[in-house]
């Protein structure tokens, strides 16, 4: 197999990337979204992801790493299947975000950037996610949950746990 035909991504994502690099006046503009979509599929930016993205864009792996390490949503270690991101920035903090964050820590028994042993959840304290008027708010992967109290935490976790179970059984 040649390097050109080998891809670590699914055919669907692969095809999407093929289109993405052609979308802009300059190929490299695809880099940041491509890294994010790659992470969505693989879970994190592994060495293999970096290598393939570099090849697809036509830049060095060092160049890809220089860019990738700049953006806080991109990670280089696996997270849980559902990454719980609790905003504790000012608007959320004023409305009890730390209580919510604590509740998540208690429930999941992991701290900031921790991953549950079953790999289903990871927890992260994050900066403002743009939901200040509906604070406190969190994101689970890309889903927003707002107007939270510590009491809403178990329900949210149950919802995703169920989803995870459902997928496992299917």
């Amino acid at each position: 197999m040649t390097a050109e035909t080998m891809s670590i991504f699914s055919p669907k994502v692969s095809a999407r990337f093929d289109a993405l690099v052609e979308k802009y006046p300059v190929r490299r503009s695809a880099l940041v979204p491509m890294l994010l979509y790659a992470q969505d599929e693989i879970g994190y930016l592994s060495d293999a992801v970096i290598a393939e993205v570099a090849r697809r864009i036509g830049i060095t792996e060092l160049d890809v790493r220089n860019v990738a390490t700049y953006y806080s949503m991109l990670r280089f270690k696996p997270a849980g299947k559902y990454n719980v991101q609790v905003c504790t920035n000012i608007s959320c903090m004023l409305r009890g975000a730390y209580d919510v964050f604590e509740k998540f820590q208690d429930e999941l028994r992991v701290g900031h950037k921790g991953v549950t042993p079953d790999g289903v959840f990871s927890l992260e304290e994050v900066e403002c996610i743009g939901a200040c008027c509906w604070a406190p708010a969190i994101q689970v992967n890309y889903d927003f949950h707002d107007d939270l109290t510590p009491d809403s935490v178990p329900g949210i976790l149950a919802q995703y746990r169920q989803k995870s179970e459902g997928q496992k059984n299917a």
Binding site: T60, E61, L62, D63, R65, N66, T69, Y70
Partner: peptide
């Protein structure tokens, strides 16, 4: 040669080799 890059950001920024 472009063997040195800048990685991470803010106060955690580092110079990184290729």
């Amino acid at each position: 040669v472009w063997a040195l890059g800048i990685q991470n950001r803010g106060v955690t920024s580092v110079i990184s080799p290729d």
